[in-house]
Amino acid sequence: MKIENLLAGVQSQARAVLLRDWDRSLRAGNHPETTRYNYVLAASQLAAYLGERMPVVGGACDPSLVDSRQVTAFQAAVIEECSAGTGLNKYKALQQFSAGLSARAKLAVADGWRAAADSGAEAC
C-alpha cells in the first residue's frame, strides 16, 4: 500500500504525519493491508473534506478538534455521493481513528507523568 497516494488530499502536514504513524501502528498490530487501507482512506478523506468544505474550523488542521457535527456532515456527503454502506464503512473506520487518537493522548499523558516522576517534579 502506498500511503502517500492516500495522503495526497491532506492539506495539513501534521495530520499527514499522524496518519502515517497510525498506519504504522496498525501494521504493528498485524491488521491486514485492506483494513489499513480502508481506515487510512477514511481518515484522509475526512481531512480532505474538512480542508475543502470547512477550512476555517479547527478540525481541518487538528484531528483532535474534529467534532461530531463535522463527522456527521462528512458521513452525509459520503452517503449522498456513494451509498449508505460506504457511509457506514467510513463511520466504522473513523471510530477506529478516534480510538487511536485517544490511545495516543493517553500515552502522551503517561509519558508526561513518567518524565515528571523521573525528574522529581510534581506532575500537576
Rank of each mutant, 00 (worst) to 15 (best):
A117R: 01
S12C: 12
L94F: 00
L88N: 14
A84Q: 13
V71T: 10
E4W: 00
A76I: 13
L19C: 02
K106Y: 14
L18N: 13
T34Y: 09
A84Y: 01
E80A: 08
M1F: 02
L101G: 06
L41E: 07
A99P: 05
R20T: 12
L26H: 05
S25T: 15
G112S: 06
S64G: 10
V17I: 09
K2E: 11
N5T: 14
A28Q: 12
A116W: 01
A28C: 02
G59A: 05
A110P: 02
V71M: 06
P63T: 11
G59L: 11
S64T: 13
Q70A: 12
L19M: 08
L88Y: 10
L101M: 09
G87T: 09
G87S: 06
D67P: 04
T35V: 09
G51T: 09
F97G: 09
L7F: 00
V71Y: 01
E81N: 12
L46A: 01
N5K: 14
A121W: 07
R114Q: 08
D21G: 07
L65Y: 06
D111T: 03
V78G: 04
V71L: 06
V66H: 05
L94P: 04
E33W: 02
I79K: 14
P63G: 07
A60C: 03
A108V: 15
D111S: 05
T86P: 00
A43H: 01
A43F: 05
I3C: 00
L7C: 04
A93N: 02
V109D: 02
R24Y: 14
L94R: 02
L46D: 01
A117W: 01
N89Q: 07
A93E: 02
R24T: 13
G85Y: 15
A8R: 07
R20D: 07
M54V: 14
D23E: 12
Y39H: 05
G58K: 04
Y49A: 08
L107R: 09
C124R: 12
R15D: 05
M1N: 05
S68I: 15
A117Q: 14
N5D: 09
P55V: 10
A115E: 07
L7M: 03
R27D: 07
R27M: 13
Q45C: 08
L50G: 03
E4D: 14
N5H: 04
F74L: 12
G9S: 03
Y91V: 13
L65D: 10
L50D: 01
E122H: 00
M1H: 07
V109I: 15
S64V: 11
L50A: 03
A14V: 15
V57Q: 08
K106S: 11
A108D: 08
V17D: 05
Y49L: 06
S68Q: 15
N5Q: 12
L101E: 09
G100C: 05
C124A: 10
V78M: 04
A77F: 07
K90S: 09
A8T: 15
Q45V: 14
N89G: 04
A43L: 07
A77H: 04
N89H: 01
D62F: 03
G29R: 13
R15K: 12
Y49T: 15
L94C: 08
L88F: 13
Q96Y: 04
E52L: 10
A99C: 12
D118Y: 01
E33P: 03
P55F: 04
